Computed example of a mutant assay.
Amino acid sequence: MTDDGSKIAERRAPIASWLIAAAIAVAALCYSSWVLEFVLPIDSDPVNQFLSELDAEGKPYREVFGTGDKIVGALLLPAALGGLLIFPRRRLTTVGWVALACFGASTIADALLPLRDCTPGEPGCGTPSELFPQLHQPHALTSTLAVTSIAIAVFAFSLAAFRYHRWRILREFGLAVLVIGSLATVWLLVADNLPGEYALGIAQRIQVGSMSLWLLTLAVAVVVEGREWTEPVSRP
């Protein structure tokens, strides 16, 4: 690339990073659409009810929550692709961007395959699962893929922050969010297999809330990284 071409690329990179960051930030806000359950006239139980039940088939505000999930996916897919194209290719960050794209696709699938109000075992309803029996339908697969994908993205970017000495905010605030989300996930996995009520709804809301906070943190990191991407990356 010529010197003029390099200068043009350097000028465009910060602009592109702002666009990517804006898409991720809006996606983070849309992924928090579940907080509307406290505003809309919904008969919900935040302590024990899973978020998937808010946009289950037949729910009065299903389109509101479902549209939020679709917007999340529609924004994160191009944002992840842009991240792959704009920023220097590193193994860990590449894994992170790909996982973020998978999270976006899974979130769209979540909205397209909502929970159905049916009896486990009947045609089209699936069979009960030992883990999270409320989610024994195809929605269970999409939700699992979404959570797994963003978990991989979080871990990949966190490791990249330490390994490459970049993405500094992910090494600080992002790590704290990672710990909170991980603790909430352990709460869900363990308590769901124990007898009695353990406020699984609260655990999932903390888990999902930490995902939104991490996405906002990633958006800030993208802006900062977009300003510094031309600097040489220090290696340990």
Rank of each mutant, 00 (worst) to 15 (best):
P138S: 07
E197H: 11
F173V: 13
F155T: 10
A74N: 01
A13G: 06
F157E: 00
P114R: 06
Q204F: 05
L183H: 11
G196T: 09
T148D: 12
S158G: 14
I108P: 09
P195L: 10
S158L: 14
V95T: 15
R116H: 13
L216S: 01
S106F: 07
L81R: 07
G83T: 05
P46H: 06
G58N: 05
G68I: 09
A221S: 12
F103A: 10
S210T: 12
L194C: 11
A25K: 01
P60A: 01
A184C: 07
Y198A: 14
L194E: 08
E228K: 14
L40C: 10
P128S: 14
L159E: 07
L131Y: 14
T107M: 11
Y198E: 04
G196D: 02
G73M: 10
R166A: 03
V233C: 06
I206G: 08
V223G: 07
R227W: 11
R235A: 12
I86Y: 00
A176E: 00
T67C: 05
H165Y: 08
G96Y: 03
F173T: 08
L131F: 13
L200Q: 11
V47P: 02
R163G: 02
P46L: 07
P120H: 00
G126T: 01
T185C: 12
G201M: 03
V95C: 11
A99F: 08
L51H: 00
E172D: 13
P41T: 10
L51S: 09
G96N: 07
W34Q: 10
Y164P: 01
V223K: 03
M1N: 10
A203I: 00
E63D: 15
E122S: 15
I150S: 07
R163V: 15
A16I: 05
V224Y: 05
S129W: 12
A219G: 04
A221K: 00
L75M: 09
V95S: 04
P14V: 08
S129V: 09
D110I: 08
A105P: 03
T127Y: 06
V220N: 01
P46C: 07
R90D: 00
H136N: 10
G82M: 08
